[in-house]
Amino acid sequence: MIEIQNLSKSFGDLLVWENVSFRIENNETVAIIGKSGCGKSVLIKHINALLYPDSGKVLIDGSDIHALDYVEQRKKRQLFGVLFQGSALFDSINTFENVAFPLRYFTKQSEEEIRENVMQSLRYVNLEESASKQTSELSGGMRKRVGLARAIVLQPKYIMYDEPTSGLDPQTAEEINELINQMADALDITSIVVTHDMHSVLKVADKVAFLDRQTLSWFGSVDDMKHSDHKELLDFVTASEYQIKG
């Protein structure tokens, strides 16, 4: 379980958000939504302690990740798989090696076991055929899927998706949404999805955290969101062309 308690963050004089609190239960998928620049990606970088808050806590299974020493913090980070906005694939190595990368450093698996696990992860994302390709040869959607394969290869407890469908055509975006659901179901993963794509939210999320006006403006289930009369949330939802209400 992930619990965010009164989290506040500024960069210099710029307040990103303050007093953000919500809880993510095991095996649920929470979408963090909000306008561009509202600090969604900054928030998930606090969850695995890539960034430190000015005040507040992030409890991962009960322990404050920012209060841990570096070695313990790194162990906690290994509970997370992260799909970055630009996929963050290592461009000096090929697809197979990108996925094998965490296995080579964090496990004592034999070459055969590594191959088996990598191919299984690539099978999940339908990219078995592309294992030997250089990452520069992959399309945007394929890069996201390789990023996802790398994120799940250590069988994380939590997975964070940063704008998983941005920059993708609708069909590929739909495939990514399907994959997020498959991962959650097949691997019992707790998912956090940062997005402003409301179609994706409706497709994958159980709960929604809405960041607006430098704080957590609304938090609740997708069903509650559909019937909410929160003005800013409604404006945000209706602006995305999808009719949630009625």
Binding site: R74, R77, V82, F106
Partner: peptide, 14 residues
């Protein structure tokens, strides 16, 4: 800038 360093850190690398 391509978040590869963030990716390393988030995997638990120093």
């Amino acid at each position: 800038v391509s978040e590869q360093i963030d990716a390393l850190e988030s995997m638990g690398f120093n």
